[in-house]
Design a protein around this nucleic acid. Sequence first.
DNA 1: TGTTGTCGCGGAATTTAATTCGGCCACTAT
DNA 2: ATAGTGGCCGAATTAAATTCCGCGACAACA
Lengths: 179, 179
Amino acid sequence: MDEETDGVLQNKPVARELDAIDRKILGVLVDDATVSYAELGERVCLSPPAAHERVKRLRRSGAIRGTAVIIDPKAVKKPLLTFVHIDTKGWGKTPELMAVSQYPEVEEIHSVAGDTCMLLKVRTEDTRALEGLLARLYETPGVTSTRSYVVLSTYLERPVQPGVTTEWPTPRHMATPLY
Amino acid sequence: MDEETDGVLQNKPVARELDAIDRKILGVLVDDATVSYAELGERVCLSPPAAHERVKRLRRSGAIRGTAVIIDPKAVKKPLLTFVHIDTKGWGKTPELMAVSQYPEVEEIHSVAGDTCMLLKVRTEDTRALEGLLARLYETPGVTSTRSYVVLSTYLERPVQPGVTTEWPTPRHMATPLY
DNA sequence: TGTTGTCGCGGAATTTAATTCGGCCACTAT
DNA sequence: ATAGTGGCCGAATTAAATTCCGCGACAACA
């Protein structure tokens, strides 16, 4: 009797551990989210409604954040991929940097440890457009320097994979970590 | 009578320019690819079959590469995001590096210009798993050094956007480019 | 300037898939 | 033991995808 008596929604944040079937489902849907529940069920040995129920649960729990089409960058005139490292004077200036997130050529903004403060992934039509973006960055208060890594070729690019991390033995020259 | 008489497939590589409606469609489907053609059509002022036809064309042309669910990295035990820069002795050693693409924790592999040769985006469960991956990298022939940028916070991360690049005036201190 | 072919669209019909429903079985905790 | 729970299946229902066909705009061409 202690369940969702608060009414409105029974969408409890189901944050359960994923089992093998869940990971299989994620593997299929990361490859192609347009498969029918019939085929999805067949691939993971479940009936269509059962597969549907699983996917619903994965969505509710947040394991599946959403579904999106993958666009060819060249098709939308953004063939040039660049990673931009930014050094800033202080951490408080990040709000100004966030304005950059409004530009459609900026795909990712990360705060990183290392000899740089921010890391941006940007796609532009050409070096001219990249220059424009960098000009905007230099005008941002707090930005002291930037380094750009222009991508020549992309050998692999894929969404987050459900696969588990491969176990690897501790290198022979290293001691077993304490924790 | 000069059309696809070669039979088999009439999937000609329709590589036409995208118009405004196509870009709107991409914008909707990048946000949420689960919308029905009825709603998609309504959002871009088209009938459901017309919207369907457009999307089919975008798929055939390759502008839409596929559809995928977006997985929460934390849900699959990969909360730690790291960008790894690799310097190599020669370019010929890349085939060896490609073996790395088999590991599920590696999401991207790029060849970049700048003071590094390769750039990897990897997601691991923890620093221990990252250490294991780096150990594997160091054992790869040709790898001379690596630098890791551990991501502390991610402020923006999204798929390729169809939005056009913002026009930006040439900075005052720069001359108009010749081409 | 008329004509013909093409292309994209809309409305209706049809097929297919998503979603709901009810009952069953295995497991758990009391 | 036993009531409760959760997940599954099969069938039924609802909703959406997909096909079909005719229309009108546009372009190439006579």
